[in-house]
Computed example of a mutant assay.
Amino acid sequence: MAAIKSPLTESAQKVAGNALQGALVDLIDLALVAKQAHWNLTGRNFKVVHEHLDEVVDLARQSQDDVAERAVAIGVNPDGRARTVADRSELPQLEAGYLADDKVVSAVTDTLAQIIGRFRERIAQTDEPDPVTQDLLIGITHGLEKQHWMFQAQT
């Protein structure tokens, strides 16, 4: 199969591709962390937090697809393989077993804050080389920041 020709210069493609790959790893792992918490949640606020975690999973899954498709559109192969995500993830992992709702809210709040920080760095990095990728990252950050606010309000 022929490679996709990039609309970007080689250097712009590299910057945007790296930003997109990092975003992809963060989003895949966020979906996994949130689903793990969703399955093992306990506590007085179970239902609200349980359903809220699914909102985070949905956002992460939709966003990872958008990120991967943007990567392909600029001629970069996205790598969402389990080993790649495990090797490159910077997210703290949840404990195994049942998880108290207050601990989950705190952990998800912290996790979202970390991801948002990295997304904001990627936004800055893609400003000049690829404003289209930057726009995608800005939109995703908007959703992540909304979820961060909503989880933070529960602490």
Rank of each mutant, 00 (worst) to 15 (best):
residue 76 V to M: 13
residue 113 A to G: 09
residue 66 D to P: 01
residue 98 Y to G: 03
residue 49 V to C: 04
residue 73 A to M: 11
residue 106 S to K: 11
residue 34 A to E: 04
residue 64 Q to H: 13
residue 74 I to F: 11
residue 72 V to R: 14
residue 100 A to K: 09
residue 62 Q to R: 11
residue 91 L to F: 03
residue 47 K to F: 15
residue 61 R to Y: 08
residue 76 V to C: 09
residue 82 A to D: 06
residue 36 Q to T: 06
residue 54 D to F: 12
residue 99 L to Q: 14
residue 55 E to P: 03
residue 64 Q to Y: 13
residue 35 K to A: 05
residue 40 N to Q: 03
residue 69 E to F: 14
residue 106 S to E: 12
residue 53 L to M: 10
residue 95 E to C: 08
residue 67 V to F: 14
residue 109 T to W: 09
residue 67 V to Q: 11
residue 64 Q to D: 12
residue 49 V to T: 12
residue 94 L to Q: 03
residue 76 V to T: 15
residue 41 L to N: 04
residue 52 H to R: 15
residue 54 D to R: 04
residue 91 L to G: 02
residue 36 Q to M: 04
residue 90 E to I: 11
residue 50 H to D: 10
residue 69 E to T: 05
residue 89 S to A: 01
residue 107 A to R: 10
residue 88 R to E: 15
residue 94 L to I: 09
residue 39 W to Y: 01
residue 72 V to G: 05
residue 41 L to P: 01
residue 62 Q to T: 15
residue 86 A to N: 03
residue 35 K to Y: 13
residue 58 D to N: 13
residue 71 A to M: 07
residue 81 R to Q: 15
residue 40 N to Y: 01
residue 43 G to Q: 02
residue 81 R to T: 15
residue 93 Q to I: 03
residue 94 L to C: 06
residue 57 V to C: 08
residue 88 R to F: 12
residue 50 H to N: 06
residue 41 L to M: 02
residue 91 L to M: 06
residue 62 Q to K: 10
residue 45 N to K: 04
residue 102 D to N: 06
residue 68 A to I: 01
residue 114 Q to C: 00
residue 73 A to V: 07
residue 99 L to Y: 06
residue 57 V to Y: 13
residue 69 E to Y: 11
residue 89 S to W: 09
residue 96 A to C: 00
residue 46 F to Y: 08
residue 81 R to V: 10
residue 110 D to S: 08
residue 85 V to P: 06
residue 101 D to V: 11
residue 93 Q to M: 13
residue 92 P to E: 12
residue 83 R to A: 13
residue 106 S to G: 02
residue 76 V to F: 08
residue 42 T to P: 00
residue 87 D to N: 15
residue 60 A to C: 14
residue 108 V to E: 14
residue 78 P to Q: 05
residue 73 A to Q: 14
residue 85 V to A: 13
residue 83 R to F: 12
residue 62 Q to V: 13
residue 66 D to W: 00
residue 50 H to P: 04
residue 46 F to W: 03
residue 94 L to A: 13
residue 101 D to W: 05
residue 97 G to R: 02
residue 81 R to D: 15
residue 35 K to T: 11
residue 74 I to Y: 14
residue 95 E to F: 01
residue 90 E to N: 04
residue 101 D to I: 05
residue 84 T to M: 09
residue 43 G to W: 00
residue 47 K to D: 14
residue 96 A to K: 08
residue 62 Q to G: 15
residue 107 A to M: 01
residue 55 E to Y: 04
residue 106 S to T: 14
residue 50 H to R: 08
residue 43 G to N: 01
residue 102 D to E: 05
residue 115 I to H: 08
residue 79 D to F: 12
residue 80 G to H: 08
residue 68 A to D: 07
residue 35 K to M: 02
residue 53 L to A: 14
residue 99 L to M: 12
residue 49 V to E: 03
residue 51 E to F: 02
residue 89 S to F: 09
residue 38 H to Y: 07
residue 43 G to Y: 03
residue 81 R to C: 09
residue 116 I to E: 01
residue 44 R to E: 10
residue 37 A to Q: 05
residue 87 D to Q: 15
residue 73 A to W: 08
residue 58 D to H: 10
residue 58 D to C: 07
residue 42 T to C: 06
residue 56 V to D: 12
residue 113 A to P: 02
residue 54 D to I: 09
residue 75 G to M: 10
residue 114 Q to M: 02
residue 96 A to S: 09
residue 50 H to E: 12
residue 91 L to V: 02
residue 116 I to D: 00
